[in-house]
Design a protein around this nucleic acid. Structure first.
Lengths: 219, 219
DNA sequence: CACCCGCAGATTGTATCCAATCCCCCCCCA
DNA sequence: TGGGGGGGGATTGGATACAATCTGCGGGTG
């Protein structure tokens, strides 16, 4: 099912929208002007609107009938809620996944972690955020709970617009590198409890940074 | 925002689709033939497809490019996952909500509970499932965590196609009535721990019943 | 007899077109 | 001066039309 080839314009539009939101081309609060974007993506408005409906039900955009779609803005309150839910659900994913990991899984995770560091070294923030996501979700997906993965993806995407900013600070990138190394050690030790704790700290750092970003952004 | 009047065809289509899935007019595994349904709902295929995209990202239908949309089928494994996630998230909602409840909230919840019993007494299964949902979500929503509410709604909707069947048994209806009464008592006592436990038992009963339904359904 | 090619009907995917709605600015009037 | 219409342009909402794709079936072929 996941192996279905994608050629539809809706998929193109969905990917392009996600990318524009992630990279800040579409910033929080911006209206999504359908004709403009459809032209830019080389599709018509119908598949673009279908893509927007998916983003709407994920909470990445909000819809006002007859007025259009707007990139969702996160309040500090929203942000806290997202991270609180992530804490709950990621802990569950980790507790389920860790006992099932075989050595090959751990090695694969190590490779993914290396990708993050490589992207960081190359100074490619976009590649780094993408690799970062692959690393974390490889672990979450290992729980074998597809709905849980889906919910987590939604929660991560809700803060996509802010995550790229987070990684632009060299300080943050460095700290993340260290945290990921610690995670890998816990993985090798199959220490779920430690891994959960490391994730909690990891999130605490990033929520603090993003909260600061929100603080400036909102007058 | 929630107060926006809805007149768009997409909303009509979305409601109609949800209803058809809930009532079993569209059963698990059925293909959603767009033209047929669009005609039945009195809309064109464009807004119908937008509604389908929302259901897709909620997991109520699955999409195969160039083949169409199909009502999602739940495996026993899916079912267990949905209930496991509900357990986790509902416990969180309850723990947050209960300390914030004022007497008026509890009275409102009692009224909603009365609605369920009234519908049950009238033998109106559809009204009962609707009232049941209002009762539970009034509590969850009281946590003041809109994203949590949204995730819970998605999880509930994933089993909508099976919930109606559950309530068709008089045994189940009777047990649920007793469980709800116990919940109300715990609410009045502001006893979150007891309320969480009652919800866990409540879910255990229904997951068992739905699992039995799935067992027959899948040869 | 199994296989595969290809056609016809059905269904989906998307572009285009037009109607409905909204937003904003300007004008009018008290 | 302030408030209340009321266009007009911009934008969205939706229906239709057509192209692309899939599915099922029949016939030919090894």
């Amino acid at each position: 099912m996941t192996a279905e080839r994608r050629v539809t314009a809706q998929e193109i539009a969905l990917d392009a929208l996600r990318d524009d939101i992630l990279t800040g081309v579409l910033g929080p609060g911006d209206q999504v002007v359908q004709e403009t974007l459809a032209d830019r993506y080389g599709v018509s408005r119908v598949p673009l609107r279908e893509a927007l409906k998916m983003l709407e039900s994920e909470g990445q955009v909000v819809y006002h009938p007859n007025r259009g779609y707007f990139v969702a803005e996160l309040s500090v309150r929203d942000l806290e809620e997202v991270y609180r839910l992530r804490k709950l659900l990621e802990a569950e994913a980790i507790r389920v996944a860790v006992p099932q990991l075989v050595d090959a899984d751990v090695d694969a995770l190590a490779d993914l972690r290396a990708d993050i560091d490589a992207a960081a070294a190359a100074g490619d923030v976009m590649a780094m955020t993408a690799a970062n996501r692959r690393f974390h979700f490889a672990l979450f997906d290992a729980a074998g709970m597809p709905r849980l993965s889906r919910l987590l993806r939604q929660l991560w995407e809700a803060t996509d617009a802010y995550r790229a900013l987070y990684f632009q600070s060299a300080d943050n990138r460095e700290r993340v590198e260290g945290e990921h190394a610690a995670m890998e050690a816990a993985l090798r030790a199959r220490d779920a409890r430690a891994l959960v704790r490391l994730h909690d700290e990891h999130r605490d750092h990033s929520v603090r940074a993003v909260r600061a970003l929100l603080g400036e952004g909102a007058p």
